[in-house]
Design a protein around this nucleic acid. Sequence first.
DNA 1: AAGGGCCAACTGGTCCAACCAGATTGACAG
DNA 2: CTGTCAATCTGGTTGGACCAGTTGGCCCTT
Lengths: 228, 228
Amino acid sequence: MSEKNLLPELAAYLYGSSNEDNGRTPSERELAEHFGVSRGQIRETLAILEAMQIVERRAKSGIFLTTRTASVEALALFAKAGLPLDPIQIYEAVELRKIHEIKAAELASLRATDENFTRLREILASSERRLAAGEPLAEEDRDFHLEIVRATQNTVFFRVCSVYYAMGERRLPIYFADPDRGRNSHAEHLQIFEAIQKRDANLAQALMSAHLQGVEGYWKGLIAGGKA
Amino acid sequence: MSEKNLLPELAAYLYGSSNEDNGRTPSERELAEHFGVSRGQIRETLAILEAMQIVERRAKSGIFLTTRTASVEALALFAKAGLPLDPIQIYEAVELRKIHEIKAAELASLRATDENFTRLREILASSERRLAAGEPLAEEDRDFHLEIVRATQNTVFFRVCSVYYAMGERRLPIYFADPDRGRNSHAEHLQIFEAIQKRDANLAQALMSAHLQGVEGYWKGLIAGGKA
DNA sequence: AAGGGCCAACTGGTCCAACCAGATTGACAG
DNA sequence: CTGTCAATCTGGTTGGACCAGTTGGCCCTT
């Protein structure tokens, strides 16, 4: 069936085929047959899923979906697999993203290096070219935000924040299908960039906060609409 | 060799036996022999390590340690395995923890439920009993901090923060070996609790910030001392 | 008809032996 | 010293096998 990246496909399948009552999934042997791969490969993937606490393997009993909250990594994985995300958890993840990025804007103002500024300028220039050509923004949005986190010089921070973008990746083309959204976003990015460059931490923080309100609103709309 | 939790042991071994130059580790077959387990089990563990981006498996070539920054999960794993942690990354993780928990104190002040308060009271009572008995604090510290994050009612947030405590777990007994530290910590916890109960978000935030300065100082001392 | 106890099938955990094809390496020839 | 090529090593993947608890259904008892 699948050729690569068994992980998201398996995760999706588990959710689709699990027992409604107790969350029990098909057995390893059944999964192996369904995906046309060996049991060893299924086990390897399940090990990862278990490490992510998406699944629990009970010896000699079965594999069960974890009811506990998904980590951000798990959310990103689900999004990648095209699985419907729990609206509540999306909302929680967006809140966490706000916490992270507002603080990141502040720290970036204090610590950004020339290298960071160069990259930010490149990203903004790329955005401008896109908009001028009438094309929708794409990875520029993600790159801009991640570069600000990187500018905090905290690599652990960067690593943690990276997963949000895996989560929203599928949505970017949809989000920026509206040209106005692209222009708005770019304008706000420019302001944030300038604030950081002026080392005005408070302003950068405030602008980022305002900017992310829009993102939050978008997700809220999706949640209200029931789609995720 | 190992009986359970191959993961941290394997991670530790990989770091100890990898090639200094290119980070290449022993082959799967060698690892299997060394740990006295089958290759399948080694592969399963390596899959997790690879998902954590601690290791990279190159087909038909070898297994290589990733030079990229570790995620918080990886840091926690290393700590659990008793591996020396990179001081810089510890510092970064502590900074991130501060960001998280100060915000958590604020949100908890706004959202904590009776259930949260009950649990917090229980934790504080347990701490008091310990101190009265002349015993060092143990998991009470972790429980208190995590309960505050839980009180934000953001389960994704809670999940992300949980890993910090896996990271520092080994240190708790050492940290609280000094009775003064236990008393101080407990007193500050009490203040934070009261601020949250009074729904005074600003105060809770400020107190948490001050409280975490101590933690940060402790880690800074460790880093300066070279031990991690 | 309901309850309890037993057994067979099922399940995850583990191991082994094998094959594949590309990467690597070292010896050999120039 | 250099270039070439074959033997070796490596991860990737498969299939089969065995173990020992778990489960669930069947049958007997009450």
